[in-house]
Write a protein that binds this DNA or RNA. Structure first.
Lengths: 384, 384
DNA sequence: TTGTATGCGTTATCAA
DNA sequence: TTGATAACGCATACAA
């Protein structure tokens, strides 16, 4: 018994057993074409096309004719050939969907949102994943361009990509939108969470709970979210006269593995703990960082939230399931995916009707989700 | 200032602000075609085609000609039109990738594996997500068929789909493979983890650690994995003369939300606890169930792993990050994705060369991953 | 060694 | 109310 040849990538599993082996006869039953329908129904391909597409001219086709043609099509199981159709109509009904790293838990809900809205419009996503590599991104750009996608959606959260990469798209007037990241200028629409508002929300929450000794783990500088979130934090602090203790403010290193946030949060929190400077709350850059921080705190015998509250950002799936479940600032990820699709669809329609369309930069509102990892400060915690 | 029209799905975010508004001129610069290259280089389209595709006949083309053509192509930024190419060659360089529910954490690594292998082969995935709905699945099947994908990969872990749905594919000799689920018979190849072996591995681990009072949370009956895992458990139990206490064996209800496992694990464990029958270890159907169980145990004051070991199945991303981190039976998900691509690629190649190819059912080996949620039985735990 | 002609399956224009 | 016919961009058989 042989198994299918594995040109073994990095880690092929032991392909223990393979059972059935069956030859397939290559009796390829050729796909049924419009011509077939025309023949069976006794009308010309042109008429068939008009009827089946419900084209404007269909108004003038005799009902009986329509019926016959539709019947024939059904009987033969006719399905139009999307590629041939494209060649005439220039419409592929597909959009390129480019992720920078799909293993980032932040991406899954966005993908769901994009897919769902696309589906409603009878479009398919051509899915690509750059693995955080620029050349891979470029290669994929070419591939989706070759396929004449009608639009492009890029999901990323850093500044990896400059305008030049997307220049081909604007040159060809292909609508594009970015999610979680935005290109300066007016070439590409974008959808981002209001990071500054989110930062404010997070600190406000801790502050209202009575926390005054607050540690911070800031995001990597290359992430576009880092700056605004910190700014929101600062602004809120200023507005209530709260002074940020810089010695309690740590910063995540530049790392592009999406799961490195956990490790980073863990490390920095341990470091924080070693400094023996008291804090009763910790505001983390994102959920994974927060989870890592909680881990470090717990390991050091600090109870969350009783002795130290922790708040994250994003609300990835994991956050609701962790112990304690995580208080966080939620990004409406799925809705952001929907929105991005709406944006490019608007562009597609406009382009179709030879209208101009607008490039817009959207900011969606984050939402505070209060779970178990934060609580009002206790006297025990504040005192000792 | 207006924002792009939102035909508001269920939960559109407050689309707070939208800044820039810029009209785009519709100066669509028409794509450059082979004809253009032919004109610029002074040769015929045929020659250009031969050269650019490095067709067999390219052997006879003068080097200087080649150079000129390639130069012209580069200068014009020529890119072949994938659709037009398809119409001749019948090759779309795309494969349909159908998930049953992408929000299942089990899916992400598989998607990564599929994408990566496809990329190596210069294929693009057409991504679809059935949301666990049969009609949606059917609709998507039609859509990918219309697009003439060269192969199909279906990721699911239950028996939702019968052979008839995939009949069109075998009829047209389109290679297909399923991951995490297998169709009886010889129409579709499949990749699955060896669930029985995995079940054995899990119980063996607990048994070796000295546990004898073991609770079980079995999977929903409709999931294809449930039966074999339980069988593996039973077989191992039998082989070492260990008797499974049926009053400690719970069963997850039928539920198709992938995150319901957590809730289910939580509930059933609470129920288990209320029965006041002692157990020192718990073997859960999958990781989410295990996480739910740990949650219930912790809540009830039972320490994991000191007082109760817990083991899961799958090794989803979350499992390494939970507290305590989860001992589990790992499915090589990414590799399974790779493997599925290799399988269908083999089919594609065979089909191309008009050879027959084989349908194979693959079983990949699971791997025990020991983390913090299990430990050797302590006397304290076994006694009281 | 290169060019001409044809057809892939549609749709759109025009004529009937 | 319907049918020829051409064209979309490319690849191939055949001619030159």
């Amino acid at each position: 018994m042989k198994s299918a040849p594995l040109q073994s990538g990095k880690d092929m599993p032991d392909d223990a057993a393979t059972n059935t082996i069956v030859k397939r006869s290559s009796s390829k039953s050729d796909a049924v074409t419009m011509r077939d329908v025309a023949n069976l129904s006794g009308f010309s391909p042109a008429t068939v096309s008009i009827v089946l597409n419900n084209a404007p001219l269909a108004r003038y086709i005799a009902p009986t004719t329509k019926k016959k043609i539709e019947e024939s099509a059904r009987k033969l199981g006719y399905r139009p050939n999307a590629m041939a159709r494209f060649l005439r109509s220039k419409r592929t009904n597909s959009v390129g969907v480019m992720f920078f790293d799909i293993t980032d838990p932040f991406c899954t809900p966005i993908l769901r949102g994009i897919e769902n809205s696309l589906y409603q419009a009878s479009y398919v996503p051509i899915f690509t994943d750059a693995h955080n590599q620029r050349n891979r991104f470029e290669r994929y750009l070419e591939m989706v361009l070759d396929r004449h996608v009608e639009a492009l959606i890029v999901v990323a959260n850093w500044l990896f990509v400059d305008i030049h990469l997307l220049a081909d798209f604007s040159k060809r007037n292909i609508p594009a939108a970015t999610i979680g990241w935005e290109l300066p200028g007016d070439t590409v629409s974008s959808v981002m969470v209001d990071n500054e508002g989110g930062g404010r929300l997070a600190l406000e929450h801790l502050h209202k709970l009575g926390h005054r000794k607050i540690a911070f783990i800031r995001g990597p500088k290359t992430l576009i979210d880092s700056g605004p979130r910190w700014k929101g934090i600062q602004k809120f602090a200023h507005s209530v006269g709260f002074e940020i203790d810089q010695s309690l403010a740590m910063q995540l290193p530049e790392e592009f593995d999406p799961n490195s946030g956990f490790e980073g949060g863990f490390r920095l929190t341990e470091e924080l703990l070693q400094r023996r400077r008291k804090f009763t709350a910790l505001l983390a850059f994102d959920d994974l960082t927060a989870l890592g921080a909680i881990r470090a705190l717990t390991k050091a015998g600090v109870k969350v939230p009783e002795q130290c509250s922790v708040i994250g950002f994003d609300d990835v799936a994991m956050s609701a399931l962790s112990a304690p479940s995580l208080t966080t600032v939620r990004q409406p990820l799925e809705a952001m995916g929907n929105l991005a699709v709406n944006i490019v669809m608007e562009g597609i329609n406009a382009s179709q009707e030879k209208r101009d369309w607008t490039i817009t930069h959207h900011r969606v509102a984050p939402e505070l989700v209060i779970r178990e990892s934060t609580c009002a400060i206790s006297f025990a915690a504040s005192d000792d």
